[in-house]
Design a protein around this nucleic acid. Sequence first.
DNA 1: TCTGGGGTCCTAGGACCC
DNA 2: TCTGGGGTCCTAGGACCC
Length: 419
Amino acid sequence: MYGLADCNNFFVSCERVFAPRLEGIPVVVLSNNDGCVISRSNEAKAIGIRMGQPLFQASPLIRRHGVQVLSSNYALYSDMSHRVMTTLRSLVPAAEVYSIDEAFLDLSGIPTGELSALGRRIASTVRRHTGIPVSIGTAPSKTLAKIASKLCKQYPKLHDSCLMYRPEDIAKVLRTFPVQDIWGIGRRHGPMLRGAGILTAGQFVQAREEWIRHRMGVAGLRTWKELRGEPCIGFEHTPPAKQQICTSRSFAAEATDPDDLRRAVALFTAQCAEKLRRQGSVCSEVQVFIATNRHRPELPQQYANRILSPPTPTDSTLELTVLAERALRSIFTPGFGYKKAGVILSGIGPRAAVQTSLFDPSDRGRQTRLMKALDQVNGRFGRHTLVTAAQGFDPVKTNRNHVSPNYTTSWDELPEIKV
DNA sequence: TCTGGGGTCCTAGGACCC
DNA sequence: TCTGGGGTCCTAGGACCC
């Protein structure tokens, strides 16, 4: 049996833990650069604010209903996520972190009769330890567990835990579950299925196997089997290393000054390299891309990118920064206003397996010790304590006009408390 | 005026091999 | 006129997820 623990309205719930005034009123959290709505309280959902909706489109509703608007604060959310995951791990044999707000639970070996109560205990313990409300879905496959967790949000009397086990119970749920809400069915296959007269998960599992294979490939077939109770997506006990690492941002305003872009690209490179080192990998390619504002078609448009390779796979911020800057210089074109830039590391492999070049100009051991020192200093004294000169201390501006304090990760940012 | 960021996997087609 | 069979690797594009 698989469990799925899903935090309800996660980013909004994180904000509410430390700002109880946000309880019971409509709240939304925005994407980077304050662009789109990416988390909504139940009250915000009820008044019709949509997921992913641009802020400016939602603003009439926001004004009319006095919706509280917050910029995203990932330092807070990732710390809260760790607390939730730690609590989950203490309650089940194993947990697979699936996203910042979800984890699959390995429930093998637990008697079926105890699963329902266990789910309720997990939900109430996470709530008590972290303040975050979660929904626990339990079923014979991951796809069914996802559906079970969604039912918790619909039916309060389930007390945050839904077990779908007996075939007749599963069939009953699938009969009314919308096909486009199934995990694995996205914005293309959803409408395709509806066009074919398949509106519910129940109709989907009744479709012919060959038809699914033909129209939706092996991934669609896997979803079909999972819904029929045949697990095809296994439990991952150790997270695989990333094959690609990306850091990118949109800017508050279009950048025309090459120095602004250089500093941004240097910062993104440093952040990518840090992620790379954290998973113990090296990379053999660094890609830089810059893009104009695609929502302003009346302005000259460009998307440019360039990939460069170090002589030997590396995880050194310094080596990668030199390459990234060279790549940027080769694609930057005066006269364009760049709204977004990013760095992508690829060709990723384990550090332990690096094949060095006979003509390698750099001192590997020295670079490694330097990066270790860099990571230790920043780990101890804060993220941007030690930076490359190329980054500077004055990052290119993004919009973040409604940000909450870093309640859990930086004491000096806590609001003053009157006694 | 204002429109996010970070990933994975599959598939088809082309280039190439013998 | 007739024009093989079997395979690998790479890439771009499309689908999906949060």
